[in-house]
Amino acid sequence: MPNFGLEITPRPDLPAIVARWQREITAYELKAGYYAVLDAADGHRCWRWLLDLRRREELATPELDAWLETDFFTLLPNRYAAPVRIAFLVSPLRALQAQSASSVATISSKQDPTQGYHTALFTDEAAAYYWLAQ
C-alpha cells in the first residue's frame, strides 16, 4: 500500500491520529494522504488529528483549497462522537509565512462553529496536543 510520503500513527494514549509528511509531495499525494488519515481515523473512531507539515512545502493553490473545502472537509461533520479537531503543526518560519498565503492559515482562519470540525495552527507539538485534548 502506498504511503504518499506520509507516516500515520494512531496514538490511543493521547488519543489522536498523528500524521507526518516525510518528504515533498504532489497534489495527488496530498489528497491521497488526507484520505489515508481519514481511513485511519475511521478505523480508530478518532476525531483528534495532528497533521505535521514541517517536512513538506506548502501546496497552496486555489484548486487544492477548493478541494479541501468542498470535497474533503464536507466528509467530517457528524462522522464521529465529537467534531473533528485538526491541529496543523508547522515550522515557526512557515507560521510567519502562513500569515499571508497558506491553505492551512486560510482553513484555520475560517472557523465556523456550525461547520462540524475545528482547526488550529501550531508551531509547538505539546501545545497542539493540549488543544486536541480539549
Rank of each mutant, 00 (worst) to 15 (best):
L6Y: 15
L6C: 07
L6W: 11
L6F: 11
R11I: 11
R11Q: 09
R11T: 14
R11P: 00
P12Y: 08
L14D: 05
L14E: 08
A16K: 04
V18M: 15
A19F: 02
A19K: 07
R20A: 10
R20W: 07
Q22S: 12
E24F: 06
E24C: 04
E24I: 07
E24G: 09
I25C: 07
I25G: 05
T26Q: 08
Y28P: 02
Y28Q: 07
E29W: 10
L30E: 14
L30P: 00
K31I: 15
A32W: 01
Y34A: 01
Y35A: 01
Y35D: 14
A36G: 04
A36H: 02
L38C: 01
L38M: 04
L38R: 00
A40Y: 02
A41K: 00
A41N: 04
A41G: 03
D42R: 14
D42T: 06
D42Q: 15
R45N: 13
W47T: 00
W47N: 10
R48L: 02
W49N: 03
L50Q: 06
L50M: 06
A60Q: 12
P62Q: 11
E63S: 15
E63I: 05
A66T: 15
L68A: 01
L68N: 11
T70R: 12
T70P: 00
T70S: 13
F72H: 02
T74P: 02
L76R: 03
P77I: 07
P77L: 01
P77G: 04
P77N: 07
N78L: 09
N78C: 01
N78P: 03
N78D: 14
A81D: 12
V84F: 08
R85F: 03
I86E: 06
V90D: 05
S91Y: 02
S91E: 09
P92D: 05
L93F: 11
L93I: 12
R94D: 10
A95R: 10
L96V: 10
L96Q: 13
A101L: 10
A101Q: 11
T106K: 15
T106C: 09
I107G: 09
S109V: 05
Q111Y: 04
Q111T: 08
D112L: 14
D112I: 05
D112A: 14
T114D: 11
T114Q: 14
T114I: 01
Q115H: 12
H118K: 08
H118C: 11
L121M: 12
F122H: 01
F122M: 11
F122E: 10
